[in-house]
Design a protein around this nucleic acid. Sequence first.
DNA 1: TATAAAATTAGACAAAGTCTAGAAAAGCAC
DNA 2: GTGCTTTTCTAGACTTTGTCTAATTTTATA
Lengths: 134, 134
Amino acid sequence: MNSRENIVNKLKSAGVTPTTQRVEIAQILFARPQHLSAEQILKMVNKGHSTASKATVYNTLGLFAKKGLLREVIVDPTKIFYDSNVSRHFHFFNTDTGVLTDIPVDAIHIDKLPELPQGTESSGIEVIVRIKNS
Amino acid sequence: MNSRENIVNKLKSAGVTPTTQRVEIAQILFARPQHLSAEQILKMVNKGHSTASKATVYNTLGLFAKKGLLREVIVDPTKIFYDSNVSRHFHFFNTDTGVLTDIPVDAIHIDKLPELPQGTESSGIEVIVRIKNS
DNA sequence: TATAAAATTAGACAAAGTCTAGAAAAGCAC
DNA sequence: GTGCTTTTCTAGACTTTGTCTAATTTTATA
């Protein structure tokens, strides 16, 4: 499924040169749909065979997000989550635990969208349902 | 409208002791519905008659948010916006300019809501429409 | 293989926000 | 009001996430 070969092709298709560090990071991210922070990824990479510096991890995540391979989720004021599932969906964010979970698209139905301000275009709609332990 | 007297009463009603610093911060925030960062508020306070330290501004904003006087808006990974409009509404966030604007409640209609995870309760739904200059 | 361009690195730096310990202000009983 | 306790405020040190820089290494290409 997510063999090195598939990952390399995925990066190439997105116009990203598949360097050692990028493939390593991609393998971690695309192993399954998940929400990881840059610091978590940095630690995971450096537990593996090859290593990557902090700057490379941050650059790579930014690049992947720009190329549409990742989705940045901004819900926690202290860090960005990178979501390896880029298909349309929404999120629960548990403010007690800091855990982000998915809400499938069909669990929310938005039937009316606002008019955008003059001279702007949409780059995505996020729905975040903040929850806490009851 | 937002005389010192009204502000003092607003704070008291929310169970917040109206100290000099809190009243000063509240007067800035509640002058009109707006989105301000902690740093902006700190600067505004210290241009006025009384002053407040960084720690006090951060503590006060956190307290106001907890008491429901303010709404924290997390859309920009570098800072929290404090929204002095706590009535139900949504937001546009322009990623090119960093400007946050309101979307009236009735401009979006959500007619289906997701089931919450076991043992949790909702503390609010946010809809953020990310936009960029076209 | 030589050369140019792109990517990686360590570590310095920046900015938002938190923490601490002492000082000041507020609340309260008398 | 006076004394006492609790709450609030303060300066500045500190933490954390993320960015920047300048030098090195890797990759692409002719």
